[in-house]
């Protein structure tokens, strides 16, 4: 197993390398000049040229690329052209915000989606099944921005129950350690802040969880339906086992593997693709961080931000592959 993980980590190198190259080229294909953006429309040609030179933008693209790669190999993600702050330190708070939100969303999606799928398959063609699958269908086809706005309007404005933007109370901000505020407040014993942090999480987490939840529910249902017809499920029933355990022990463990694949992919999507939700809920996440950087043509931030997201995406998929072999003893990677 360790051998396999080692091999997978080695395979990571060419993948990430190829990715840096593609991202590097694509962002330079976007029209616009970082120096011009930073200095504004009124800047003189000389000033722009000087700034370009100081940012290293006057070099040919391949020289720039090799400089970037050289920095990466020494663990340096570069420095924001706009703020002059190293990307590595600037990235952390945003990454923490995105991780916290997407983990909450995926946990919510898994708990509700998997159970809805199981119950739908168990009581196939019941009213629950029909209702759950119609809701799931609405869920996958729901525009996230609309759902987010509706949530804000109903729970934030009309009912005034939950906050609609940000991560914490600006008058009583969380003192960040890991930038995962739930963990930070627990470490510091600030349970008053913990409540506020969770309140801030609820609406964006629901908005973000909707599509994955619907996909997971549908996937679980179809996978369970197939497994429920299998011989070993009949054997378990013939032993006199309770239906609950037949479903949640014998059937679920077999049905969960394809669902796990979907969960892994969805989790990856949430990490990089939560820009809409982050924008609507003013959530200071990595999606918005990269999006803003694109506006400023802040090349190092875009390059390294995407690299970090891709790295996490790959790690999640590795984790999923490892989970397969833990669940199914027939899957051996060596």
């Amino acid at each position: 197993m360790l051998h396999y993980i080692g091999r997978r980590l080695l395979q990571l190198i060419p993948v990430l390398l190829g990715m840096t190259f593609i991202v590097f080229l694509i962002i330079r294909a976007i029209p616009g000049d970082p120096a011009q953006v930073i200095l504004g429309q009124q800047a003189t040609k000389e000033a722009v040229a000087a700034l370009r030179a100081s940012l290293g933008l006057d070099n040919p693209w391949y020289i720039q690329y090799f400089h970037y790669l050289g920095d990466l190999l020494t663990g340096d993600l570069g420095e924001s052209m706009r703020t002059k702050v190293p990307v590595a330190s600037e990235l952390w708070p945003y990454l923490g915000a995105t991780l916290e939100l997407s983990l909450c969303a995926i946990i919510l999606a898994v708990i509700i989606g998997v159970n809805a799928g199981i119950i739908s398959a168990w009581f196939q063609n019941s009213w629950f099944d029909y209702a759950a699958m119609i809701i799931a269908l609405i869920g996958v086809s729901m525009p996230i921005f609309w759902l987010g706005l509706m949530e804000q309007w109903i729970f934030g404005i009309q009912l005034d129950m939950l906050p609609t933007s940000g991560r914490d109370d600006a008058r009583n901000p969380v003192n960040p350690i890991t930038y995962l505020y739930i963990i930070d407040t627990i470490i510091q014993g600030r349970f008053d802040q913990l409540v506020v942090v969770i309140q801030h999480l609820i609406l964006p987490a629901i908005a973000l969880a909707t599509i994955p939840m619907a996909i997971i529910a549908r996937m679980t249902r179809s996978s369970m339906l197939e497994v429920m017809r299998s011989d070993y499920v009949r054997t378990a029933r013939a032993k006199g086992q309770k239906m609950f355990w037949v479903v949640y022990k014998h059937a679920l463990k077999n049905a969960i593997i394809p669902v796990l694949t979907v969960i892994g992919l969805q989790m990856g999507m949430l990490l990089g693709g939560a820009i809409l939700t982050e924008t609507i809920f003013s959530w200071p996440g990595i999606g918005r961080y990269i999006y803003d950087a694109i506006g400023f043509r802040d090349y190092p931030v875009i390059q390294s931000g995407i690299l970090v997201v891709a790295f996490m995406f790959i790690m999640i998929n590795l984790l999923v592959d490892i989970l397969y072999s833990i669940i199914d003893p027939r899957i051996k990677y060596n």
């Binding site: 011989d231 070993y232 009949r234 054997t235 014998h250 077999n254 199914d328 027939r330």
Partner: peptide, 8 residues
């Protein structure tokens, strides 16, 4: 071949 649960 299929009457025993493969994962237990």
């Amino acid at each position: 071949m299929t009457s025993l649960n493969p994962l237990f």
